[in-house]
Design a protein around this nucleic acid. Structure first.
Lengths: 340, 340
DNA sequence: CTGTTAGCGCATTCAC
DNA sequence: GTGAATGCGCTAACAG
């Protein structure tokens, strides 16, 4: 592989001149530039990025850590991030969770092969983040908070989303509403539960412990929860699953038991995954503004990279998406947003 | 940020010794190593990966270029790739298409910040790949062929998959089968058409040009194709859409026109996306072994990185997935009961 | 076992 | 405008 030195030699100039001819560094006579460019082309010269990064102490690259790529909204998130990274001429690299996450974390974040990181992966331990975030490596946390320097937070308003969707059920006249939670250590799930709780309180309803079930965000756990719920002596009127996957499981469970949704029981979820609008009945849910979240996260990160000190945490609003799974036969509902 | 020199000084050893104490380079007396480790810990030392990459001329990183992340099987592909990259201690970075693709391509591939690349993105021009693939940067192409050195190919057997699914319809007694293609320049779509053609030929049926429609792999184009097809003077008995998204559009089109699937017309797709099993009727389709494809691609890439010369192209078998959308009434099926 | 030294390839400062 | 020289931080080869 040809190096800058080879190009310079062939062009009959110094290495410094070759460098500034190739980049827009200092002024170079037009003839000289042409010579250098031609030599570079002849030798099929490609600058060595690693050497440049070492010299300039910048990589112009950010990394995004995702737990999994399967979710449909991750794509939106990435698009949002990229839209602002592209503008700045930064490359965006995506790293998926799993076994290799530690390798990637070490390589990119700890060993400084990127200028900043955005993390949406609950399995990255707090302490790991705390011990790596620093002035040369700011980190933006999505859907999680962690009070430590050089660490910013961006999140959708899960609590409000849960509040809205619960209220939607309450306004439809439902009162006995079951809740299927995510894993016990899920921050999102707690916030959603809080919103659920808040809406009930406003209607003077206390949490009925027998109507709260624990899932783990998988479809299967939703199915199991549905079985438990449907075996309850008196059926709830609504079921709020803390995410759509579980809501799909609940739907299957109801179908298997011959319970009609929404006539006998309304079912709602959270996230608005793609399948939500395809399943029958189409699922009422809450949509997070993933594209915007990505954009805001990236902008915050760049501000931190630029050395701005106090970039505050940000919370973005969610949207209620009303579909068939919560449409009561008798009630006129008030659709806020609409489905595909 | 502390450097190796700082650590060495604090530990009272030479920089070379510090280096070999931190890595598993050469033998270091246990006491010395302990001193170095402690100094590193005190200074919160982190090795500079960029400097190391420059020195060692390796990055231990591969990049995967994907057109989009939204597709559900991309996640599987990545998992397959990672499973083998992880084993080798390589980091896997994912790069999405779009505006930033050029930035990423230049930065990672051209400027040598990775050791190899896997490309599943039809929008990367052939010439770009041809001009960058070299001994220091082998490239594995997924679902595409390009005869050029240091460039390998891995693909699912699209033709055979299409052949199988068409034959499945033929064996169900259908004869007039429409085909909805992808974009004209899609290699995948051509191969699928070829399989369709081959199956028909075997049954002594010639291609009926009036039954071939062009789509662009989007759901919307499937819907449009369905409209065109259903306006045909005599309805076909089956519709083979070259991918599932379009098949979903066809399904919508049939529903909108009051055409019953599969009773009046069978509809099949290709890819087995997640929604395929949720839609009603559930979609008959062809599944690509994405996880395996990823694994095979990564293994081939590593072989090339290791300097092996002739790594041959590989083709992996697909699987027919029969669901309701192709079940003819005569085949004794109860359209009343449904299950996931 | 450990210290010294020479680059990896490039951008950049200082002379001219 | 251009050339020569310096060093980014590290690994590895060479000497002790």
């Amino acid at each position: 592989m040809a190096t800058l030195r080879d190009v310079a030699r062939l062009a009959g100039v110094s290495i410094g001149t070759a460098s500034s001819a190739l980049n827009q560094g200092r002024k170079v006579k037009d003839i000289t530039r042409r010579k250098v460019l031609e030599a570079a082309s002849v030798l099929n010269y490609r600058p060595n990025g690693v050497a440049r990064d070492l010299k300039t102490q910048r990589t112009d690259t950010i990394v995004v850590f995702l737990h999994d790529l399967a979710g449909p909204f991750y794509s939106e998130l990435i698009r949002g991030i990229q839209s602002v990274a592209d503008e700045r001429g930064y490359a965006t690299i995506i790293s998926r969770g799993g076994v290799g996450r530690q390798i990637a974390w070490t390589r990119f974040v700890v060993e400084g092969r990127v200028d900043g990181a955005i993390v949406l992966d609950p399995t990255v331990p707090d302490e790991v983040i705390r011990s790596t975030a620093c002035s040369t490596l700011p980190i933006v946390l999505l859907d999680r908070t962690l009070a430590t320097p050089y660490c910013l937070h961006v999140a959708a308003d899960h609590e409000d989303g849960a509040y809205q969707i619960t209220k939607h059920l309450l306004l439809s006249g439902l009162r006995r509403i079951a809740f299927v939670s995510g894993p016990i250590d899920s921050h999102d799930s707690s916030l959603r539960f809080r919103g659920y709780h808040k809406a009930l309180s406003e209607f003077g309803i206390n949490i009925d412990e027998t109507l709260v079930f624990r899932g783990d965000f998988t479809e299967r756990s939703g199915l199991l929860a549905a079985r438990a719920i449907l075996s309850h002596e008196n059926l709830p009127e609504g079921i709020f699953a803390a995410n759509d996957e579980m809501a799909l499981g609940v739907l299957s469970g109801c179908e298997a038991s011959g319970i009609k949704v929404p006539d006998q029981v309304a079912v709602v979820g959270f996230d608005d995954i793609a399948i939500a609008s395809y399943v029958r009945p189409a699922l009422t849910t809450v949509r997070q503004p993933m594209y915007e979240l990505g954009g805001v996260a990236a902008r915050s990160l760049f501000r931190a990279i630029d050395g701005e000190q106090d970039v505050s945490s940000q919370v973005l609003p969610t949207t209620l998406v009303v579909r068939d799974s919560s449409k009561r036969p008798s009630v006129n509902d008030t659709p806020m947003a609409q489905s595909v």
